[in-house]
């Protein structure tokens, strides 16, 4: 097991370096960002001086190697637009996004499991029909549109939820201010409702279908039939036999889900003016703030890799039949 984890982590280093190289080349290919850092009326000499000051006059490979060299020392460099250490800025924005993603994931899973189970055990009835229809709809509404509609309806018309912004919980908690964190918590959750639903709906819909279909499949399996035929009560069969095995594909999804939800936050954070990492990186890409984008992308990739490793290990616990050798990459 230890060797497996070490091997996976080594592979991850390759992945992270690949990620930085792709990011670097992609952002550099569009030309250098000097123009974003001089005023509208700057002279050509001024632009040239700024280009030198920012280091964009150096050959590309020199720029990348110096970046990788700094990276090896854990230095992501300074954000070009904020003039602050890039990693610091990214880490500052991370807690809000984690709150949003976790909320969305909990929302998507907590509702998906009962809905999926309900649809599966009442297969073919109106329950099944409406849950399936709902999950189909949920998979076909773009999140930005849903976000704006929820703002207008639940925020503005019904006045039930805050329209935009956030109240931090994790940030004060991490800085040791437990009192503020928990005083904030109700309002934190309150601010998360609309953006969280906007981020999580697609996943909820997909997971509902997944739970339903994997449960249906398990219910067809021999051992469940055997259990039933032994006269066990339906609920016992469901919980002890069927659900336990239906968990596997759900666990697999959770790891990938995080990366997927992170993709959704770019749009939703913009709609809800939510100060998270998605909006930060979107702005940074537009600004060609390469160090900031690099720091963000490396951080997200790191989280994604670790999470998937954890999922694989959990998977292993749940289903010892899975062999280590293959891994899931």
């Amino acid at each position: 097991m230890g060797a497996y984890v070490v091997r996976r982590l080594l592979q991850s280093v390759v992945v992270v370096i690949g990620v930085t190289l792709v990011t670097f080349l992609a952002l550099q290919a569009g030309g250098d960002p000097t123009y974003l850092f001089v005023s509208e009326r700057a002279s050509l000499e001024e632009i040239e001086a700024t280009r030198r000051a920012l280091g964009f006059d150096r050959p590309l490979h020199v720029q990348y190697l110096s970046f990788v060299g700094d990276l090896a020392r854990g230095d992501f460099g300074q954000s070009l637009s904020y003039r602050q250490p890039a990693m610091e800025i990214v880490l500052e924005a991370l807690p809000a996004t984690v709150e949003l993603t976790v909320f969305a994931m909990v929302f998507a899973l907590l509702l998906a499991i009962p809905l999926g189970v309900l649809a599966a055990i009442h297969r073919g009835t109106a329950w099944d029909g409406s849950i399936t229809t709902f999950s189909m709809l949920g998979q076909s509404i773009p999140s930005f549109w849903m976000g704006i509609m929820m703002i207008l309806f639940f925020g503005l018309y019904m006045r039930l939820f805050p329209i935009s912004g956030n109240v931090p919980f994790l940030a004060p908690l991490l800085s040791g201010d437990v009192v503020t964190a928990f005083t904030n918590l109700p309002r934190t959750i309150f601010h998360l409702v609309l953006p969280g639903i906007a981020v999580g709906t697609y996943s909820l819909a997909r997971n509902t279908r997944l739970v339903r279909s994997s449960l249906l499949e398990v219910l067809e399996q021999d051992y469940v039939r055997t259990a039933r035929s032994k006269g066990l009560r339906e609920r016992r069969v469901l919980i002890h036999h069927a659900l336990r095995n239906a968990w596997l594909p759900v666990v697999t999804i959770v790891g990938l889900e995080f990366g997927f939800l992170l993709g959704g936050v770019v749009v939703v954070e913009t709609v809800f003016s939510y100060p998270g990492i998605g909006r930060l990186l979107f702005a940074a890409i537009n600004q060609r703030d390469i160090p900031l984008v690099q720091a963000g992308v490396v951080l997200l990739a790191g989280i994604f890799i670790v999470l998937n490793l954890v999922v694989d290990l959990v998977y292993l616990r749940l289903d010892p039949r899975v062999k280590l050798a293959g891994g899931r990459g």
């Binding site: 800025i89 924005a93 704006i148 207008l152 935009s164 912004g165 809800f272 003016s273 100060p275 998270g276």
Partner: peptide, 30 residues
């Protein structure tokens, strides 16, 4: 709070509000 809010506090005249909160809201409809 980067990407979210800047709060200013009055220390002297002129100004009629104790605080000015500048909120960053990129989406026009929001």
């Amino acid at each position: 709070t980067r990407g979210s809010e800047v709060v200013l506090e009055k220390v002297r005249e002129p100004g009629n509000f104790q605080r000015i909160a500048w909120r960053i809201i990129p989406e026009a409809s929001t």
